[in-house]
Simulated scan of single mutants.
Amino acid sequence: MTKFLNYQQSGSGKDIILIHGLFGRLENLGMVAKVLAENYRVTSVDVRNHGDSFHDSVMDYPTMAQDIADVMQHLAINNAVVLGHSMGGKIAMELALTQPELVEKLIVADIAPVEYPPHHNQIIAGLKSLDFSIITKRKEADEKLSEYVDNTGVRQFLLRNLSNNNGQLAFVCNIENIANNYPNIMKTYQGKNSYQGPTLFIKGENSDYILPAHRNEILRLFPQSRARIIQGAGHWLHAEKTSAFNRSVESFLTS
């Protein structure tokens, strides 16, 4: 029996699917969904091992792309605009490259189709260190996490995953499954296809996730792609510069 990702829908019209990044949840793209829902039917998903979706020991891009395809089939969505941020962008690219008939247009936020060196090891170690038999307050979790992650904004983002059930804190992401699959998450598309549909890469000016060195690979896999740079934004460009990000998306959708 197929397990379906947790999702939320809003709005009506042509379909857009939103996919969050690593350690995220569907609410992370809420300000994008809210604006898009004025003109489109928006389906926001929690990726496996994240948010309110199921936990599973398998977590690679072919599998996660199939999760999106399964949700689309479940909701009778024949094809859609697919927008993904960071890891979600890699899932969106995988879907477009392997099942292009499902993807009308592709929007990739601040990630390239390349393999990245591991750079979340401290975060994973910090999250694994949270012992909720001892930690009973959000502030205590933040203090413990600060031993591993000194950036306050990153800690706040991570601690959005805390749930509180009658005073018992827990972390909704399955850290063990994410940690075990972390090498897969750093990888990229392994096949030889290219996606011929309209594609937009949106880069944060201050982020180093998309670099000039990635240009040839982007154009090889996505020959109909164009790029936009959001000035003054880093990797969380949709949260830092929401209006500029939404304008870039809307311009691409109506072009």
Score class of each variant (00 low, 15 high):
E38C: 12
E38D: 14
E38F: 06
N39A: 11
Y40K: 09
Y40S: 12
R41W: 12
R41D: 10
V42D: 08
S44M: 15
S44A: 15
S44P: 14
S44N: 15
V45F: 09
V45T: 10
V45C: 09
V47D: 06
V47E: 12
V47F: 05
R48G: 02
R48E: 03
N49E: 13
N49I: 14
N49F: 15
H50A: 13
H50T: 14
H50E: 14
H50N: 13
D52C: 12
D52L: 15
D52W: 11
D52I: 07
D56G: 07
D56R: 07
D56Q: 11
D56N: 13
V58S: 03
V58P: 00
V58I: 14
V58L: 05
V58D: 02
M59Y: 13
M59A: 13
D60T: 04
Y61W: 00
P62W: 05
P62Y: 03
T63Y: 02
T63A: 06
T63I: 08
T63M: 08
T63R: 06
M64A: 06
A65L: 04
Q66L: 10
D67F: 02
D67V: 09
A69M: 04
A69H: 13
A69I: 08
D70F: 13
D70M: 13
V71H: 01
V71P: 01
V71A: 01
Q73E: 12
H74A: 06
H74E: 14
L75S: 04
I77R: 00
N78S: 15
N78T: 15
N79Q: 10
N79C: 07
V81Y: 00
V81K: 00
V82K: 03
L83K: 10
G84H: 03
G84E: 04
G84C: 03
G84K: 03
H85D: 03
H85Y: 02
H85F: 04
H85E: 06
S86G: 12
S86D: 14
M87Q: 10
G88C: 04
G88T: 03
G89C: 10
G89S: 08
K90V: 04
A92Y: 02
A92L: 01
A92W: 08
M93L: 11
M93D: 06
M93F: 05
M93V: 08
E94R: 12
A96S: 09
A96Q: 10
T98P: 02
T98H: 01
T98M: 02
T98C: 03
T98I: 02
Q99G: 05
P100Y: 10
P100E: 10
P100I: 06
P100A: 09
E101R: 01
E101H: 12
E101T: 10
L102S: 12
L102D: 11
V103C: 15
E104D: 15
E104A: 14
E104F: 09
K105A: 12
L106F: 06
V108A: 05
A109D: 03
A109C: 07
A109V: 11
D110N: 02
D110Y: 00
I111Y: 00
A112D: 07
P113G: 03
P113A: 03
